[in-house]
Design a protein around this nucleic acid. Structure first.
Lengths: 220, 220
DNA sequence: TAAAAAATATGAGATATCTCACATTATTGT
DNA sequence: ACAATAATGTGAGATATCTCATATTTTTTA
């Protein structure tokens, strides 16, 4: 992680205004910083002392279980807060967050913690953010247990395909969707067999859009 | 649902003080109400116009999927807010909430919505509540996909057993834990076979506490 | 650019979990 | 007190999903 210079700072603050999040001047407490691809923003189990607001980039939220199994819990995409739970509660240790791409964040030091926690404007925005977060997680996991993997995968392919081509990393996606690597490959092969997808060098091409939509619509 | 009289109102307000949630006087906007066992607090799909704070009782949060499958998402236990997401966002329709026992709530009309959304004291408490909610849901569902049902059931039995006896309703629990009724019965039978539980008229008695703890501790 | 590490691929066998059908109690409303 | 409804219990067969072993290809790193 490194902190950006005055020029870059000005540029980002103009591009992604944040002043209206607060009813006091946040600039003295704010820095613009950059994480390289693959860098860890929070180490799992640490006690973070900074509130981040991600403005560009993408990261993954991880958690390691006692049995050593690692779950990819969520993709975090800009714009969003990180470390907000730790701001509200004392001494909460965090899950791990690792960037997927180069990521730019506003970092807000906890030296203005008191001010933040007394600022209705900021708190209201945080409430909305947290509420949406809870709703989204609930929806995702409720689906997970109510639908077979086939439907969830179809939905995910629709969501993540670019120009009709699906080319995510299997190792990552099987974690995210909560199935084994083997099973993901099985179902992808099955989609190919059923002529819904076609596997080429460039990725899995969607050839039966309609059928895919049908499968995924059983969810939404 | 019916609204309690002045005496009862005073009694509850003394027993469960709520004044310090707000920096203004909430009493003019507040009523104490009671829901009977099995009554619906929110009908699924409706647009609630009241913020509730449950002070006594227990309820279940439900959601119906497109395919007709119903998920029991969460047990809601006092004390907690209900309808807070709908207060923050315009026109959000809600999931269904049905009481399990007689339930007492403070109901807060949306006529003080503006005041609430400008009150840092209240918003801060709401943030903490929402943050915990998100954390809890994440933990629950992350476990769901990382551990086989055997472990989760062991943990749930430990949690819900009363004096060493487990006697929840199967129909409800299989929904909550996200498995079929049949499978729940299988695993309970398996626990009996392994002499972890013993089935009697009064319920399933825990006879091998140690082994049960072992199974469930693989999670926590 | 060679070696190491990560990602992809596939087979085979095990098991966790589901669906459906049906019988037997409890519980509840009238 | 009786009918209706909900909850419990069990068998059998299907299938969704996992584990493990092993080979190949791609990407990363020294």
């Amino acid at each position: 992680m490194h902190i950006l210079t005055a020029e870059a700072r000005t540029h980002y603050l103009e591009k992604y205004p944040i002043h209206d999040f607060f009813s006091f001047d946040i600039e003295p407490y704010l820095e613009v910083c950059q994480f390289d691809k693959g860098e860890w923003i929070f180490q799992e189990g640490s006690f973070p002392e900074t509130l981040y607001y991600m403005i560009e980039g993408k990261a993954k939220l991880y958690m390691t279980h006692k049995n050593g199994k690692v779950s990819l819990i969520e993709y975090l995409e800009a714009p969003r807060f990180m470390g907000e739970i730790e701001l509200l509660n004392e001494a909460r240790y965090t899950k791990g967050i690792q960037t997927v791409t180069k990521t730019i964040c506003y970092s807000i030091t906890q030296s203005c913690k008191e001010k933040l926690l007394a600022d209705a404007l900021f708190l209201r925005r945080l409430c909305v953010f947290l509420g949406e977060k809870a709703t989204k997680i609930t929806a995702k996991y409720t689906q997970n247990q109510a639908y077979p993997f086939e439907n969830r995968l179809a939905a995910f392919i629709q969501l993540s395909a670019d120009q009709g081509v699906y080319k995510e990393k299997h190792t990552e996606i099987c974690e995210y969707l909560g199935v084994s690597y083997r099973h993901l490959l099985y179902v992808l092969a099955q989609f190919c067999e059923e002529k819904i997808l076609e596997k080429r060098k460039s990725g899995y091409h969607i050839i039966d859009e309609k059928r895919l939509a049908q499968l995924s619509q059983e969810i939404q």
